[in-house]
Design a binder for these strands. Structure first.
Length: 563
RNA sequence: AACCCCAUGGUGUAAUGGUAGCACAAAUGAUUUUGGUUCAUUUAGUCGAGGUUCGAAUCCUUGUGGGGUUGCCA
C-alpha cells in the first residue's frame, strides 16, 4: 500500500494526453481558465461500454478541474432517434454514478439559433444553396486524389441564397431537392472542406420538435455551434472526427465566435469477442439474436448491469484502460479482471450447486437438520456470517467426484476424504449407478468431530467442496453466459459477423441453492462459492430464482486440465 | 491512389531529451476451510534505416505497418 503511494501508482489519476492538455490550458488561462465539457450522445440506441469510456473522460475531466459536464442529446437527425433512447441514456449515466445537475440539453433546442448562424454564413458569402443532385455533385467534388471544381451554386447572390434557404425552411421544395453548403475550398485535400452540406431537407417528424422543421442541420455544422452556445471549453470526441476538426474551427471562426471551444480526439474503446457499433448492436436486438438491448451478453451498459457488473468496475476499467490516440483492442480478460476485483471485495458468498450429485451421509441421523456458521465474505469480516442448514442428504457438484481420480485431483473419490465447506469431513464409501452405468448417488460417512471444518486430531484434507442440503434447498435457474462471438474480431476480413455468433453463449442450468438466496433482492450480485459471481435477475419468481453468471471464478485446476 | 492520425513485451498503458516502469495475460512457487483471494518469482518490449545530441522510446528525415476520410449519418 505504502509502496503504491511512493511509486505514484494510485491508478485513479494516471496521466494521459488529454489530462495533460487540460492541465496546461488551465495553467495558461486559456478560455478563462475554465473547464466545461459535454457528453453528446445521439439518442439512436443504448449506451455501451465504449460510451462509458467517453463518459468517464468527459465527466471525470470536468470534475477533476472543478468544472461541469453537460449531458447533451445530439438529436439533429430525427430518422433514428426517439424518447426511449433518451430515457435509457439518462438512466444509464445516472447508474454509472455521474450527474450533470441542471445541464441537460438537446441540440434540437438550438435549431433556431443554428438557422440564424446559417443565414450569417450566407450573408458573408460563406454558404450557398446547392440544387445539384447527389450524383451530379460527385463530378464537382472530385475524389481522394483529384481536387474538386467550382460548383454552379457558388455563383448565386446573397439575396437569392437567403430567399432559397428561407423557402427550404418553409417547405417549398421536395426532400433532397437542394441543400445548403458551406463555401470553403473545392481543392482542399480534406474532402470535408470541399463545400460540405450543412443543411438538408428532410420531412421527418422529430420526437421533440414535431413537424416544426423540415430542414435539419448536419452534424458538422450543428456540433460546433452546440458546443459554443453552451460555452464548452474542451470538446472530446473519438478519432473518426479528427478530419472534421478543420471545419469545426473554420465555422466558429467564420461566425466570429469569441473564445471558441477546442476539439480533441481520442481512440474509441474496442473489446475483443464482441461488437461495439450501434448498427450491429441494433441488428442483434432487432433480429432477435439476443433478447434485447439489456441482454446480459450485450456490451451495453444495461446488459452489463443485468449481467451483474458493478458500475464501479466499469468506471475503474475505463480509467485503467487509459486514453490515447492509438487504435487499440482491449482484451476481454482485462475487463473480467476488473469485474472480479470489484466483486471479490464486495460480493457475499453463498452455496449453490449447478450440476447436482446426491450424497447420502449414512451415519448422520435421519431427519436431523442442524445449522452451520458460514462466513459471508472472507475479504470483509464486517460482512458477518449466516447459518446454513445441513442434513443427511446433500447435493454436491458432479465434477467434485471422480470414481477413478486423475493425478492431482483432490476432490472426492472412493474412500477419499474431503471437507464440506463450513461443515464436516466426509469420506466416500460407495457409488450407486443406474443400468446405464451413470452415477446416481454417493454413499458417505462423516466425522462428527470435524464440525466447522477442522479435525481435532490435526489430520488434513486436500479438498474443500461446496454443497447444499437437499431438504432445505431452493430451486432456481442459473444462466451461464459465455462470450457472444467465437472470434476476437467479429466481422473482420469481410466475414459476416452474424456467422460468428457463439451458439453456446447462453446455457441454462437448474440449480439448487441455500435458502438465503431466495430472499436476495433483484440486481444484487453474489458469489456462488467455487463457481463464480451471479446476479439475481428480474425474471425471478417466488417459485424459481433466476441468476445470471456475471463471470466465473478463475480456475487454475480447469486450466491445468485443459493443457 | 491523395491527405490526416497512430506505432513501447501476447494485450492495454507510463516514461514530456537522462536508470524503459505498471496492469492484464502466461509460467513457477508459497499461503489458503473457495484449485478463489493474497504474496513472491519468472518469461517478454521501444516497427526498420539514417541523422541531431555527451545522451533518443522521446526531436528530424525516410521506409514499413495499422487506422481514418470520398453520406443530403453521427
Amino acid at each position: 500500500m505504502a509502496d503504491e503511494i511512493l511509486n505514484g501508482n494510485t491508478d485513479s489519476e494516471a496521466s494521459n494526453f488529454i489530462r495533460d492538455l487540460v492541465r496546461s490550458d488551465v495553467a495558461a488561462g486559456l478560455r478563462g481558465g475554465r473547464v466545461e465539457t459535454r457528453f453528446p450522445p445521439e439518442p439512436n440506441g443504448y449506451l455501451h461500454i465504449g460510451h462509458v469510456k467517453a463518459i468517464c473522460l468527459d465527466f471525470g475531466i470536468a470534475e477533476e478541474f472543478g468544472g461541469v459536464c453537460h449531458l447533451r442529446m445530439d438529436d439533429t437527425n430525427p430518422t433514428k432517434e426517439n424518447m426511449e433512447y433518451v430515457e435509457s441514456i439518462i438512466n444509464d449515466i445516472h447508474w454509472l454514478g455521474f450527474d450533470w445537475g441542471k445541464h441537460l440539453y438537446f441540440a434540437s433546442d438550438y435549431f433556431e439559433k443554428m438557422y440564424e448562424c446559417a443565414q450569417t454564413l450566407i450573408r458573408k458569402r460563406l454558404a450557398y444553396v446547392c440544387d445539384l443532385a447527389p450524383e451530379a455533385w460527385e463530378a464537382y467534388r472530385g475524389d481522394l486524389t483529384n481536387p474538386g471544381k467550382e460548383p454552379p451554386g457558388r455563383l448565386r447572390s446573397v439575396a437569392e441564397n437567403l430567399d432559397l434557404f428561407a423557402r427550404m425552411r418553409a417547405g417549398e421544395f421536395e426532400d433532397g431537392a437542394m441543400v445548403l453548403r458551406a463555401r470553403i475550398d473545392m481543392a482542399s485535400p480534406n474532402i470535408h472542406m470541399r463545400d460540405p452540406v450543412i443543411y438538408r431537407i428532410r420531412r421527418v417528424h422529430h420526437f421533440r420538435q414535431g413537424d416544426k422543421w423540415c430542414i435539419y442541420p448536419m452534424y458538422d455544422f450543428a456540433h460546433p455551434i452546440e458546443d459554443a452556445i453552451e460555452r464548452i471549453t474542451h470538446s472530446f470526441c473519438t478519432l473518426e472526427f479528427e478530419i472534421h476538426r478543420p471545419f469545426y474551427d473554420w465555422l466558429l471562426k467564420s461566425l466570429d465566435w469569441p473564445d471558441p471551444p477546442v476539439q480533441t480526439e481520442f481512440s474509441r474503446l474496442n473489446l475483443n469477442y464482441t461488437v461495439m457499433s450501434k448498427r450491429k448492436l441494433l441488428e442483434l436486438v432487432r433480429d432477435h439474436h439476443v433478447s434485447g438491448w439489456d441482454d446480459p451478453r450485450m456490451p451495453t451498459v444495461s446488459g452489463l448491469r443485468r449481467r451483474g457488473v458493478p458500475a464501479s468496475a466499469m468506471r475503474n476499467f475505463c480509467e485503467l484502460v487509459g486514453v490515447t490516440k492509438f487504435n487499440a483492442v482491449t482484451d476481454m480478460a482485462f475487463f473480467e479482471h476488473c469485474v472480479r476485483e470489484e466483486l471479490n471485495r464486495g460480493a457475499s458468498r453463498y452455496l449453490a450447486v449447478l450440476d447436482p450429485l446426491k450424497v447420502v451421509i449414512e451415519n448422520y441421523p435421519e431427519g436431523q437438520v442442524e445449522y452451520l456458521d458460514a462466513v459471508n465474505n472472507p475479504e470483509n469480516p464486517a460482512a458477518g456470517s449466516r447459518q446454513v442448514p445441513f442434513a443427511r442428504e446433500i447435493y454436491i457438484e458432479r465434477s467434485d467426484f471422480m470414481e477413478e481420480p486423475v493425478k492431482g485431483y483432490f476432490r472426492l473419490a472412493p474412500d477419499r476424504e474431503v471437507r464440506l465447506r463450513y461443515g464436516y469431513f466426509i469420506r466416500c464409501t460407495g457409488v450407486e449407478k443406474d443400468a446405464a452405468g451413470r452415477i446416481t448417488a454417493l454413499r458417505a460417512v462423516y466425522d462428527p468431530e470435524t464440525r466447522g471444518g477442522n479435525a481435532p486430531d490435526g489430520r488434513k484434507v486436500k479438498g474443500t467442496i461446496h454443497w447444499v442440503a437437499i431438504a432445505a434447498a431452493v430451486a432456481g435457474t442459473a444462466r451461464l453466459y459465455d462470450r457472444l462471438f467465437t472470434v476476437e474480431a467479429p466481422g473482420a476480413d469481410g466475414t459476416d459477423y452474424l456467422t460468428q455468433l457463439n451458439p453456446d453463449s447462453l446455457r441454462e442450468a437448474a440449480c439448487w441453492m441455500e435458502p438465503a438466496l431466495a430472499a436476495l433482492p433483484v440486481g444484487e450480485t453474489v458469489q456462488f462459492e467455487r463457481l463464480g459471481y451471479f446476479c439475481k435477475d428480474r425474471d425471478s419468481t417466488a417459485e424459481c430464482a433466476v441468476f445470471n453468471r456475471t463471470v466465473a471464478l478463475k480456475d487454475s485446476w480447469a486450466k491445468k486440465q485443459a493443457r
